[in-house]
């Protein structure tokens, strides 16, 4: 009798070295996390790239996505101010400069939470690699520079997952200024910390602000342990470093 199609043997998985199956590592939240989530079922990896505007995050992430996908991993990307729920309102609020700091903080946290629940968690459950363009560390650093309470921030961001890898692209404020001008020919109000009154001169303010931000990142690094990567190199060199680290993450080391 001919073998029914259903019972024909399934093609064996090829033993190619190109597509490696990542080792499963447990996930957890920084705090009590989002209610009702079974951390055991989160199989993918969360990779975070941090750094100031102009540090080269988008370039690095784009290259990583290409490499990961080429290696057979599914990917998804998240970032600040991208949620369906509040990104529009957040944009409006920032342009208007009308919101107080705690409010702005909570707005960003809402935006973040929406992405955690609607994008990150489903993707991780499905075994995807999630690439985050900035994470809670930027949000915390911005708030700490503005004098917000650290304990309050830690509690707030207890809803965040602990990433599998965090890269902080480190570059001097002077270099950042140059790169920002090369990109946009203008400095962004918020990235220059103009609301802080550090200087009436935007250029001056930018430098001062970035120094303060770098200082906060150094402190956060001591608590959260991220990889500080020298970003004053060619994008390819930087990416090679990131890939090496990610490979160990995928291998479960």
């Amino acid at each position: 009798m001919p073998i029914p199609r259903k019972l024909k043997r399934l093609a064996a998985a090829p033993r190619t070295p190109e597509v490696r199956i990542p080792k499963l590592t447990p996930k957890r939240f920084y705090g009590e996390g989002i209610p009702g989530v079974d951390e055991e079922r989160l199989k993918g990896k969360l990779i975070v790239v941090e750094g100031a505007d102009g540090s080269g995050r988008s370039t690095q992430i784009a290259q990583l996505v290409q490499w990961l996908e080429g290696s057979g991993h599914a990917t998804v990307q998240v970032g600040l101010k991208r949620s369906t729920l509040v990104s529009e309102e957040l944009e409006k609020a920032q342009n208007g400069n009308i919101l107080s700091h705690t409010t702005l903080s909570l707005f960003y946290a809402t935006d973040f939470a929406d992405q955690v629940e609607n994008i990150m968690l489903p993707a991780l459950k499905a075994g995807f690699m999630v690439l985050a363009d900035r994470y809670i560390y930027t949000l915390m650093a911005r708030d700490l520079v503005r004098g917000m309470d650290e304990a309050w921030l830690k509690n707030l961001y207890g809803i965040a997952l602990v990433p599998d890898a965090v890269f902080y692209l480190n570059i001097t404020p002077e270099q950042l200024v140059q790169r920002n001008f090369a990109k946009n020919k203008a400095l962004d109000y918020w990235e220059s910390g103009m609301d802080l009154g550090l200087s009436r001169d935007m250029f001056d303010s930018f430098l001062k602000y970035q120094v303060l931000m770098a200082g906060q990142f150094t402190r956060l690094q001591a608590t959260y342990g991220f990889d500080i990567v020298d970003a004053d190199r060619s994008p390819d060199d930087i990416n090679a470093d990131l890939r090496r680290k990610i490979e160990s993450v995928l291998a479960g080391r």
Partner: peptide, 17 residues
């Protein structure tokens, strides 16, 4: 679109404002 977490955060944002 609201979950318990985002529902809570949005009301906290309103309150803070």
């Amino acid at each position: 679109l609201l979950t318990p977490t985002t529902f809570s955060l949005i009301h906290a944002t309103d309150f803070a404002d």
